[in-house]
């Protein structure tokens, strides 16, 4: 636990120092990474702690973004807008989750994909409200009560704060009794069920929480770009976030956030240098799988074990634990 606090303080320091070292563009990019990190952590929660792999999570992100864009002209208060985004996406997650969690594994993946596409199609076809494929602008920038926040530093601070709050919330959730039960369900559903826990309720709760956080990330994104288009809820975007989570490391809180940062940075960097970026990006993913040990976050653990525990013979104890069980799809 102490280690966690230490890491957390280091992170705070880095977040504080970054704006002084980075260019304006760098600050913008890191702000965006914070938003994506929140989104990735929300997906990481259900993937890593509840064993639900969703390919429609961008649907909730889209709900958040479109709530800001659509209600913005009628509700001038940013707090209210954020609140509505969270409630709406959480509510939707609750309702759809109640249906979806009956299916398992691969079927869950596909039914969430359908859900994401449904929202995508809605945004695409309700042209009179959403502007359809042309997208729509967000009417007013974020305003938290002390003027409109438009400067890169201002946005950076908000996004960094949001990220930290979400991280703490998730940490709290995961370490709460409820979080422990959820994790127990993932590891052995039959046992937890036999112990008298209502498995579905706990899964649904986690899914709802995750959906609400994804919606929160989406609404921040709406304020960040001041423009939304149906692409925010496309399945390709859901797929990308899933990549972020897996790259970073499933089963940890901060892993997906690191994955998000790495993914966005790499994709941006490579595609600037070559038009052939999909080949390189794809090859990197393949290499990561072949030499990786369950995500970047575990590399740190490995590195640390190599440095601090060198003398120990049995250093495998500190090698990354594989979170995914050798379970099969069906």
């Amino acid at each position: 636990m102490k280690k966690n606090i230490l890491i957390f303080i280091v992170f705070l320091l880095i977040a504080f120092v970054l704006p002084f070292v980075l260019s304006v563009y760098g600050i913008d990019l890191v702000s965006e990474i914070f938003i994506m990190a929140i989104f990735a952590m929300s997906l990481g929660l259900i993937m890593g702690y509840a064993g639900m792999v969703s390919l429609g999570h961008a649907g909730f992100f889209g709900i958040g973004a479109y709530t800001v864009a659509l209600l913005g002209p009628h509700i001038p208060n940013s707090y209210l807008l954020l609140f509505f985004s969270i409630c709406l996406s959480g509510l939707l997650a609750l309702v759809t989750g109640a249906i979806f969690i009956r299916t398992s594994k691969f079927y869950f993946l596909m039914i969430t994909l359908a859900f994401g596409q449904l929202l995508f199609a809605l945004a695409w076809q309700l042209k009179q409200w959403t502007g359809g494929a042309d997208g729509m602008k967000v009417s007013a920038p974020l305003n938290l009560g002390f003027g409109e926040i438009v400067s890169p530093i201002g946005i950076y601070s908000v996004m960094a704060a949001a990220f930290i709050i979400v991280y703490l919330l998730l940490r709290f959730f995961v370490e709460s009794p409820v979080g422990k039960i959820v994790k127990g369900i993932m590891e052995n559903e039959a046992r937890m069920s036999a112990l008298g826990y209502d498995v579905r309720i706990y899964k649904l709760l986690t899914y709802t929480f995750s959906g609400a956080l994804a919606g929160f990330a989406g609404s921040l994104y709406g304020f960040y770009n001041l423009f939304v288009s149906p692409d925010v809820s496309s399945w390709m975007f859901s797929g990308q976030v899933m990549m972020m989570v897996i790259i970073g490391g499933v089963g940890t809180l901060i892993g997906p956030a690191i994955g998000a940062g790495l993914f966005i940075f790499l994709q941006n960097f490579i595609s600037t240098y070559t038009e052939r970026w999909p080949i390189i990006m794809g090859a990197l993913l393949v290499i990561l799988v072949l030499v990786g040990k369950g995500g970047i976050i575990h590399w740190f653990a490995l590195l640390k074990s190599k440095i601090f525990y060198k003398k120990r013979k049995n250093s495998d104890d500190y090698a990354p634990q594989h979170v995914e069980k050798e379970e099969v799809v069906n």
């Binding site: 993937m47 792999v53 797929g239 899933m242 990549m243 897996i246 790259i247 499933v250 052939r276 999909p278 080949i279 990006m281 794809g282 090859a283 990197l284 993913l285 393949v286 990561l288 799988v289 072949l290 990786g292 369950g294 594989h322 995914e324 050798e326 379970e327 099969v328 799809v329």
Partner: peptide, 27 residues
């Protein structure tokens, strides 16, 4: 070359085949 390395690891499979899809489509 590839699939053989990751039997039984679902999430790695997703990442790997996704990466391969990128590579093949762009090639």
């Amino acid at each position: 070359l590839f699939i053989r390395q990751i039997y039984g690891k679902e999430l790695e499979q997703v990442l790997l085949t996704f990466g391969l899809a990128f590579v093949i489509a762009d090639t």
